[in-house]
Design a protein around this nucleic acid. Sequence first.
DNA 1: TTGTAGGCGTTATCAA
DNA 2: TTGATAACGCCTACAA
Lengths: 338, 338
Amino acid sequence: MKHITIKDIAKHLNISVSTVSRAFNDKYDIRAGTRDLILATAKEMGYRPNPIARKLIKQQSLTVGIVVPEFENAFFPQVIIGAQEVLHKNKFQALVMQSSESAEMERENVQTLVDNMVDGLIVSLASETENLEFYQELIDKKMPIVFFNRVSEQLNTSKVLFDDYKWAFFATEHLLHQGIKNIVHLACPQKLGFAINRINGFKDAHRKHNIEPGEIIKCGFSVQDGERVAGELIAKNTIPEAIFSASDFSAIGAMKIFKRNGFKIPKDIAVVGFSESRLANYMEPPLTTVSQPTVTIGQTAAELLLTQLNSKGIFVPQTIILNGNLVVRESSMKNLYS
Amino acid sequence: MKHITIKDIAKHLNISVSTVSRAFNDKYDIRAGTRDLILATAKEMGYRPNPIARKLIKQQSLTVGIVVPEFENAFFPQVIIGAQEVLHKNKFQALVMQSSESAEMERENVQTLVDNMVDGLIVSLASETENLEFYQELIDKKMPIVFFNRVSEQLNTSKVLFDDYKWAFFATEHLLHQGIKNIVHLACPQKLGFAINRINGFKDAHRKHNIEPGEIIKCGFSVQDGERVAGELIAKNTIPEAIFSASDFSAIGAMKIFKRNGFKIPKDIAVVGFSESRLANYMEPPLTTVSQPTVTIGQTAAELLLTQLNSKGIFVPQTIILNGNLVVRESSMKNLYS
DNA sequence: TTGTAGGCGTTATCAA
DNA sequence: TTGATAACGCCTACAA
């Protein structure tokens, strides 16, 4: 495809390319008349400045790379929308890449973005693999990076996090307050930094109420994982009074199996999920879950990155911990029926 | 961030930049020894070819732009994953942009991608607005574009479509076969090309069985739209024996309201959705729906685009219509209970 | 206020 | 087989 260039306009108007260039960069001296003429004919000829050429010469791209482990679930797309919104307002463009939960693909993606001269990166780690040196090297080379949600303690950058401890605590307490004493926790893979925070929240809520915490079962993120665990509990005949799951999907899977085996939710087993999924509100019964401020996470990450980009010189990484809320629905309201 | 360049290597090795360049482009004559030396030191120095500079001189970017109206739902992300897979195998990179269902933003996105010298575009229209001339101009300028899912008949390009007519027909027939005679269709916004195909499938299935089609109600894509319509049906006391909805979400909303008002699904009202959402299988009862081959749609679109990119010279646009299947679940099996 | 010329990191055409 | 050199489209001293 043929692109109109600054040269075409210069030739057409019989002036020099630098004058044309100046018309598109206000900061230079140029007669208003000629500028208007240039702008007008440029528009007429369908000229658009070539960002590629600009990137090359300015050594900055006005582009930010966003790398997420997946965008199959609602969480990351919403974060991306938040980030894009802020970036767009600040004349920045977002390049989005997803890593399909693969550390290798994540590395490739980041590399591609760096090669393409992004000015900064917003990243959520696919997993806590050893490729941290790779990030450390980038950071050493002064590449601004903001991590969110899935971060590493070892990397000294700005971060946007959710207060997993607190909301796991509250979610657990919400069950304890109803007099429930036997809660099983379906925990996320421990590789993910927040898993331990959710576990600690679960434990400490019990401690506060002087109740022995129930079993903590390792469990994946998926519906299938929840189904499997519920199946095992039924097989062992160790049915808890409540389930607090670190993911909505495993909660939903567990709920499905329990219901299929004749248990009533929440009467026999109360269920609380985590990380408000689109499904939660349409479950039977609707699922109580912790809602994270997804869009705000994205906005905040973008803002932190822009701050860093604008701070010529010294910059101190910040960690921002965002708040959420517990969306109480029927699945956890045991005393409705008591 | 400082990038190592071809010059740094040339200086380091005391050779010319052209020799270094050649080492990275096999097709040129270069002594194996020097090439290996260059490649080795390049690696050591952390050099990576700058794709930006390459794009500029080669006038091709090995990059494809993908523009979708949204990626909140599962559909588009899956299509994107399919497209990325094929592109990646062919050394192409995908730049993904979403338009939040806004024609204006879509135009901006496409423009940005074109400015960034993408070699081609894969697009699903946000809506059937008048900005079609914009696309027509691009097509006239020889920009390869493949549309999918939401397309326009006016644009003569390759397209990837789903056989909406056929599957609406089958879905309707699945209800009629059970002896259901009074089916209401919740139709998509007519602006979307496939809405009319689904409506025609619905009508023709009735025609085949010599049954008068039930009411066709205009309805949006969302859960709320389905809730509203169900509410209206209840208010008017015109409860159908079945609902065939052109979207899973409106089906789910309708189901929710019907259930809340004491109707049993599928006993009182059978429900069929469209476009397999992640929720469908976890509804109560699980929702019967038409499943589209999302990943294949993306793969096919990418393949069509690559074909066009490789076809130096004459190229004839193709339209590929993909097949799906009806996932029958409990929500539509009325005769289970009769 | 405008033009000339050099350069951003590559590739490609010539000579050598 | 290698090296100068001119592009690609744009920006920006410096000169005019």
